[in-house]
Amino acid sequence: MPASQPPEPTTARTHTLRVDGLGVTVGQQRRAAVHGVTFEIARGESVGLVGESGSGKTLTCRSVLGLLPAGCNVAAGSIVLGAGDSEVELTTVRRRGWDRIRGLRLAAVFQDPASYLNPSLTVGHQLAEQLRVKRDLSRREAHARSVELFVEVGLHRPEQVFHQYPHELSGGMLQRVLIAIAVALEPELLIADEATTALDVVIQAEILQLLSRLRRDHHLSLLLVTHDLAVVAETCDRILVMYGGEIVESGPTGEVLTDPKHPYTRALLSVASIGDWTRRTLDVIPGSPPEAGEQMSGCRFAPRCSAAREQCTAGPVDLTPLDAARSARCVRVDELALTSVGGVA
């Protein structure tokens, strides 16, 4: 594993997660699916990771969680959780080491909550067991704390829910149970990968609200993964836009949404849930994203970019800072800003 430079102590103390130059390969041919992904999440900060299907969002999250599918590997980069004394380089953690990290310091919720629960045990038992084992609580204490947590995640009749099996609960309730389990041990970082995608809008809004509240009350950092920019609009402080395995734009949510710098971000905005019911256009991003491992010279978005010029594919395009808070991976970013479309009207 590469040893990155020790970070400056001042910044280090404030960060929950620092990912630097992450590369992930998939399959036997070790095709590069994620490359050079670098970002940070500050303590208590909420960051949205957004991009089309196949852009590498899930592989990035799973690398952080040490849960890459078989055949997928972290090939480059460093992932540092915590700061100061509690700092740990996650890419070097091996099997047993994860027991002291996953669930305790890092937690995650996914799109299909049912598959992360044991169908033959009550949901209360599954939460209480974790508290008993990892927090050393007595059976009675664990039960009481579980019910408190169920209340906190907005489950109605928590005592009753405690004794129910996963199949007896709706998708929205199951996701609340999973969130209760995820935050039970007060992790530093919660990763939500498309956690609300399968839910209807009312429940989705409730879960997003819940995540925001938990973040505030528990000083939790949040990494929210979705394909729809609209989902992160109200929940995240900052947005990372991913395309073809790379981060192509990052910046504060409001700025990115009102003044996107990268043509791909503009394209994503044009297809996002606008919330303006009078707008009756259904835009699509023409073409399809590159496959994992696809060799391309220069900008990976070029084949689909209406602003592409020869210069775009001449050589590597770096993620370049635009100001203290924003960066973009586009060689024409300055020219395009002059003819800015100014985001959604």
Binding site: Q204, A205, A233, E234, G275
Partner: peptide
Amino acid sequence: LTASAPSVQLEDRLHPDQLRHPLG
């Protein structure tokens, strides 16, 4: 439903809490 729909417009609009009670 309309108040809960995600939107990239961070405008003032009806908030879900104005329309429903928390469950039960």
